[in-house]
Design a protein around this nucleic acid. Sequence first.
RNA 1: GCCCCCGUAGCUCAGUUGGAUAGAGCAACGGUUUCCUAAACCGUGGGCCGCAGGUUCAAUUCCUGCCGGGGGUACCA
Length: 606
Amino acid sequence: MKVDRFKKEIADIVSREFDRLLSDLKVSEPELYVFKPDLLYKRIGTPKNPEMGTYALPLFELAKKVKSNLIEICQKLVESLNAAVEKDKRYSHLSFSAVGGFCNIKVKNETLAETVLTDILNKGEDYGSSDLGQKKKIVIDFSSPNIAKPFGVGHLRSTAIGAALHRVYDKLGYEPVGINHLGDWGTQFGKLIVAQRLWGDEAGEDDPIKRLFNLYVRYHKEEEEDPSLSEKAREAFKALEDGEQDEAELWMNFREVSLDSFRELYSRLNVLPLFYELDKYGESFYNDKMDAAVNRLKDAGLTKISDGALIIDLKKYNLPACLLVKADGATLYATRDIAGILYRWETFRFEKALYVVGSAQKDHFKQVFKVIELLEEAENTPHDERISPRLEHVEFGWIRFKDQAMSTRKGNIIFLEEVLDKATALAREMILEKNPDLKDIDRTAEMIGVGAVIFADLSTRKHIDVNFDWKAVLSFEGETGPYLQYTHARLCSLLRKYGKTIPADIKYSVLDRPEETRVLELLYKFPHVISETAETNEPYYISLYLFELASAFNKVYQRKDDSGRIIKIISDDKSATSARMALVKSMQIVIREGLVLLGIEAPEEM
RNA sequence: GCCCCCGUAGCUCAGUUGGAUAGAGCAACGGUUUCCUAAACCGUGGGCCGCAGGUUCAAUUCCUGCCGGGGGUACCA
């Protein structure tokens, strides 16, 4: 948790003053939060209306506890606090006011501006970085598409969220390990092999992925008419598992074709470098590691046979039994995940392992994590070497389309590639209309189109289902990626026009308008937003923040004086201009860095 | 049946872990540019915060029940 310097100062001084004010009380109410800086720290919030102050401390509970008049005690506190900061220079940038039952605290603008802007300008893109993680490894299992199926918009969520978390942990000094748990094994390959043999020649279609997809859809359609197909598919998969050459060759081909197309897509999404050996750690990687895992569970006395299958009963924990080996001897994905956890622990000794997988798999991960926990109990693993407390399912809601879950089998799926292409084409049109002289139009259009799609995906809380809405994804106005990029381009444009380096001696006191204060407060918040994102594994906090920040700056940019004229950033007033340009430069750094964390590129012109 | 998630403006969603007059974007309507990028900014209208209880100085937030939507519930992933 990143410590807020101002908040800490407030907690300290309030606690100190309360100690003095109510020293007689301390004996009867020693547990009262106002006496303890750390508890106070947590109570300090921000006022609804920013004009009331930077921070707010509600005192209702206190008044009740000490049975005194709320307004009176609030006033008394504020008076004594203001007297205290007058005497103590270290706190002279704080001022307090009593409103209702709240003690509102204002940080002097000049101090805030100087603190924030010098910090950002000194650190540059490292603003918000830390060494908190001490290079500890965070394994992030994300994206994980199925081989031989097209990459649908549904896979975007895991990819975008996982990639954002990867970058956030990296910024906080951890060493993230991005693992793509490719769905490259399982009965669907039996189906595909059968389909390929039956209709492979008539499939047409140049794009090899779409060809496979058509075969897959056709298989499921024909299977409804001819149930004997599913028996053939099972046999084909069995042959694959037994290492038969024909089947293995087909499988290898499916895999390579898919990986080629995934690589291209990942590269467009700016996530390709985040994977640790992209093509290695698919499900098939664990084929030769499952026996050992299963035996270990058996030896621990956890398993039993039920209806011919090997299971671990989890009824005690209110969970369905975990199936390890099917009656026919084949393994399941839970088996692979268990083997995967054990392998990853041996290989990486991670601090945490995150599974960025849809919430439909919630019970699955509960089961798998519980099995690991039971194993460690049975084996008496020392507590600091246990894996189970380090495992976390980072779940997210479905992407649905017109109130239907998307289903590859039925063929109602939207290709991510198609979405990116459409968004990019639209961005291109927009550039041609608004800025036809732009140098690198195609490249910029790609940045904007892809940025719009990623931001749309990361701008709602991850756990709720989202309706895929073409209109929302292809919108470039309001709460969108392009809005942020546009703001960034505008900042860059200001910097170009200014054309000088920001001077060192800046008169921070000129940044005294409420709109500017708002921007400063938000800039100050950036490091906290990053650490909050890591604590909750919720990248949308960054999206939300960036939108607030951009919006706050655009208000500064277009504010008007009393006669209705825009107050320009760059003017004849040198000291005002250099202070504002310090703000502009800081803004540009933070918004760019925030976009980078989300995987969105920040063009300097658009 | 049991378990989990969701229900806030016409639509899509926020609401800082219980605080002040519930906020944004889109859509609708009106305004702002002799131009530091209008992909922007300002304004107007629009709310039984699903319903009913409970806890609390204070509930959109926590608890219980109900209604509605979604997901999961051993040989798919």
